[in-house]
Design a protein around this nucleic acid. Structure first.
Lengths: 208, 208
DNA sequence: ATTACTAGGCCGCGAGTAG
DNA sequence: TCTACTCGCGGCCTAGTAA
């Protein structure tokens, strides 16, 4: 609760200004009792987190350096955690030629969603499942819904825009993975492997 | 405490991987009892924050989406708070000619610290104390220590590199403010007012 | 070794109320 | 009105211990 109150003060003051308010008002905003707010404010003051001036009919509070630092430390920790990777490296691996078949099926929908007609085939890159998650954490995929032909049905896929060696492309993820999810498939409007002169085990770098 | 534990898991797993550990180990790291860790982990699991697999001789934990989202929300809040202003606007106001006198005294030291010889005079800009703090929050000032001549003593000053209309300069802050701290003084190696054709009340923009 | 139950104590919360 | 004290209750913690 103490932390919540400190954050509330930080937000209301924009870190630096002074906030004219009352314990009742804060209590309502945070859904705690007026008494608790009073007590917690005193605690925060004792801890050197805030400055607190009581006057008849209300109080003025402001963050002190220690309080700002406390929050900034938390921010630093979270920033390190959530700072998404800007690059993703992996090695070229051979696919099973499946990609070509599937891309043909989704071709029109991909064109519609991404603005380019995909080359019929995927560049398969072996990397690390966890790195992939961290790399894609901050981007929302473009989803293409599944559909059915007279023969069979095709599941939904997700596309994430990426840049491969200067070419705009996308990571394509089937909703139901066909293989090991340490391998990702990349599409573009050109034959990436040929254009970039890639062979098995060559290192490729993806950017966002 | 619950929050601390969630953060601990997030850090140890890098958000996505699985952590092999034991309640005792976590307890030591967080300075709480093994029993509390056990209970809190169960709570977090019930709340859908983590996944928890108990095996003989230890346990494996991983964050679930809800847990990551919780932390990311906190991150977003703090990010908004700590995202420093990139620009600072203010209006030109007249000084009292004092600046010229002082700059002369500190000239050599400023040259040494900043790499330019300051024009003898300051551009005084009226803005907002709080905006100034927010603008300067993420930069460390260059400090010039005070000194004394045979006549009198001069206090320490702090310099913050800024860009004014394309010119590299600095905000100069005396340790003991001579005037209203809603007014800041800017120096550069040219006569800013003349070079930029500024008159009283014109708006100026500072960048970092 | 482990995890996690039970029991008991402490601490924080809110209701009542004084100033 | 305001803040903040006292006090009783409940939830959270840890110690002991079973499995």
């Amino acid at each position: 609760m103490k932390r919540g109150l400190l954050l509330y003060i930080a937000e209301k003051t924009g870190l630096f200004s002074e906030l004219q308010t009352s314990t009742t008002r804060i209590a309502e905003a945070l859904s705690v009792s007026q008494q608790s707010v009073s007590r917690l404010l005193i605690d925060l003051e004792k801890g050197g987190m805030i400055e607190r001036k009581v006057s008849s009919g209300g109080l003025a509070i402001a963050l002190k350096k220690k309080g700002r630092d406390q929050l900034q430390n938390e921010f630093t920790v979270l920033k390190r955690l959530f700072h998404p990777e800007r690059k993703l490296k992996g090695k070229v691996v051979d696919g099973f030629g499946e990609g070509k078949y599937y891309i043909e099926k989704y071709k029109l929908k991909i064109k519609e969603a991404m603005g380019f007609t995909p080359f019929p085939g995927t560049l398969n890159i072996k990397t690390d499942r966890i790195k992939v998650k961290s790399f894609l954490m901050d981007v929302d995929p473009i989803k293409i819904n599944g559909f059915a032909t007279s023969d069979r049905s095709f599941g939904s896929i997700e596309l994430y825009r990426v840049n491969v060696g200067g070419v705009a492309g996308a990571i394509i993820k089937p909703e139901r993975t066909r293989h090991d999810d340490n391998v990702i498939e990349v599409i573009a409007d050109v034959h990436l492997r040929k254009k970039m002169g890639l062979k098995e085990n060559n290192v490729v770098e993806l950017k966002k």
